[in-house]
Each structure stands twice: as C-alpha cells, then as structure tokens.
Design a binder for these strands. Structure first.
Lengths: 181, 181
DNA sequence: CGCCGAGTTGAACTGAATCAAGAAACGTGG
DNA sequence: CCACGTTTCTTGATTCAGTTCAACTCGGCG
C-alpha cells in the first residue's frame, strides 16, 4: 500500500516539480492556520505533520502526514471555502509546497497530467474508506493495532491525545488499550 | 449540495453521452454481482439502487443511489480487483451504464474531460467525509435525522435494515430511534 | 524545588449491541 | 378473497465497550 503512495508521490514531484517550493518547519510550527483559505498541499519529504480541527472545543486529528505523504486543507480546496483544518509540524520537517491555484493553472495547460491529480484523490478516497470501515467494524483495540501496523513510526512521535482523536476514542481509552497489550 | 450533484451528473452525461448505454432494471434485480470485476458506473435516471457488501455474514449497505446519483463498485475500479460490492435495484430503475474501460480510453483521447472525472471523485470523497464525521461525532438519533434530511425519499423506499446498516447501527436501534421521534 | 503538561488509573454511568420473542406487513397460491 | 408462510419491524431485558469525571503519577525544565 505504501509503496504505491511512494510511487505516486514521486510522480507528483516529477510532474509538478516546476511549481513546488521547498519549505522547512521546526517542531511545533503552524504550517497553515485554520479558519482561512487553505491554498496549498504539502508533500512531506522528512519529518511529521498533522492536520486537525476543533469539534465542540476539542482538538481532533484529521490526518498524519509522514514522508511521502500529503497533507492539505482538503475542504478548502475542494469546496472553495475557509478551512476548518489547522496544519502543524509535530517534528522538524521538510515539505514541498504546492499552491493549488498554480496546480489548476498548470493542469489547464497540460491536461495530460490530470490523471496524476486524479490518482492522488483516489488515494485519499481509498484511505478514507479504510478509516470509515475501521470506525464501523473495529473496536478500540483493533483500531489501534491497525494503526500501529500502518504507522509504526508515529507511535513514538505523536502524542497519546493526537492518536486517540485520530482513531475516534478518548485518550483514556487509548491508554487502557496500550496497557492491555 | 444536491443541485451540485445534479449539475455534475448532467455534465457527465453530456460529456460521456456517446459511451453511455441506457438500461432498465426491475425491482429486486441484481445490477452487478459481487465478487467479480465491477467494470461499470451507473448513473441513475429514475428509481433507486443500492450497493452493499457482507461483513461477517451480515449485509451492509454501502451506498444508496437516487436519481442523478452514481453507483459503482468503486473498489474494483480503483484497485483493479474483484469487488466486494453487490449492486441491486430497490425499485424499478432506469440507469445509464458507463463502462470504466471505455471511459479510460475516452479520457486518453480527450484529456480535457479528465476534470469532470476528477469532480465526480471529489464528490464521492466529500460525501464520505461527511459520513465519516457522522460516525465520529453523532449518535444514532442524530445520524438518522441527518439521513432523513439528506434522503427524504428513501425513508419510504428503503427497508429499515438497509438504512440501519448504512448508518452504522442495528435495525433494533433504528426502530427505537424512529419511535422516539 | 515546585510547577506543568502528558499519561495513567479508578469508579460510575450510558448509548447501543445482543438475544429473544412477538406483531405487522406482504405476496403467493389455492 | 382468504390462508399461509416468510420477511420485516417492534418491543423488552440484559450486557458491555467506551465515555466521563476525578484523582493521581511521572518526567522534564524553568
């Protein structure tokens, strides 16, 4: 699954190379403010980012982005509205910033690359299907085990609370799950 | 939200018109067998279809497709593998069948229409985000109320069990939710 | 040192699942 | 048109996973 992501990301970099800007963030930095127009996607080269939003005042992790991963305010980009998502660097990170407007313009001129954009979206979609089914059919422990297999590196680098909200459980529950296995 | 879907579907019909085949199904008909290569998308013109799959022997509704909606074995199409989804007509229905292979070939020749395909995928994605967040943050009653607002016609045409599994609850729970409000 | 955020642990509570039994609705054939 | 069996829906009693709330531990770091 992840080699697929890697291949796709490399393709993305080679196709959009001319409009990508490398940026570095240090640990804790805000990459993109919420409640604003999120105009970029970020392709992670090293480090770790997280997107999150607030639901009744509590911080909910929407997505973790590890190397070769992509993160962005998808709602803002797809719906042309202010984003609910904040993006922050959980570790010192290097990313390639891709302005969505520039990408659109580029694709306008080079529609033969639309396919790559579509594949990125397909990947996002399939990812979400997996998370959705996890919520539907797996209990807290199973979701966590699945997460550990999928993102082994995150277990040390993301905090309990961040992971718990990503998995749709309280941090107390995740803490108990961890102890019990 | 739904006028957007309607606009997109009309665009889809006008762009791919030459490779769409009208087909009719009577109530209860199997539109596409599961466990096979699902090679088509279906654009609903009238009636009601449902896609579903089996999870530990129980029938889970993945998607309802009302007029202007689209249904297909997305897993099969995106991952090139046998589909877990079955598609059936819940009412006598008229659809436009779009063979995915033909669509790919068509897009190969006319990449300027890739954008339309991407928009369809975006819509599927945003739909799924909404369902995901519903599962995360809403209780059984809230999910059902949301469903009623979104698909008012389905309440009479789909069975309790079909709706319950779509919403991620048992049919007993849905029955109680209905009584209580 | 003492504070502060992050994680742990405990006890009580709760929404929904499960299991089991009936009631209603439905269609099919006599 | 009724009788029958099947499927769909309802209702009740019980159980359980996970939440909530509250207190406590631990490990830095000023």
């Amino acid at each position: 699954m992840d080699y697929l992501l890697e291949a796709l990301t490399k393709q993305l970099i080679s196709v959009f190379g001319s409009i990508l800007s490398p940026v570095s963030y240090k640990k804790g930095a805000v990459v993109q403010e919420g409640n604003s127009l999120g105009d970029s996607l970020f392709i992670v080269q090293s480090g770790l980012l997280r997107s999150y939003y607030f639901q009744n005042g509590t911080d909910i992790t929407a997505h973790f982005a590890v190397p070769f991963g992509i993160v962005g305010a998808v709602d803002s980009i797809l719906k042309q509205q202010r984003s609910i998502y904040w993006i922050e660097a959980l570790q010192c990170s290097e990313v390639l910033q891709l302005y969505y407007g520039q990408m659109e313009a580029f694709l306008e001129d080079n529609p033969e690359y639309e396919r790559v954009a579509r594949q990125v979206l397909q990947m996002l979609y399939l990812d979400l299907v997996e998370r959705f089914e996890g919520l539907m059919f797996l209990n807290a422990q199973e979701r966590y085990m699945h997460f550990c297999r999928r993102y082994p590196d995150l277990i040390q680098n993301a905090s309990l609370g961040h992971i718990a909200s990503y998995l749709g459980m309280t941090q107390e529950t995740l803490s108990r799950v961890r102890r019990s296995k």
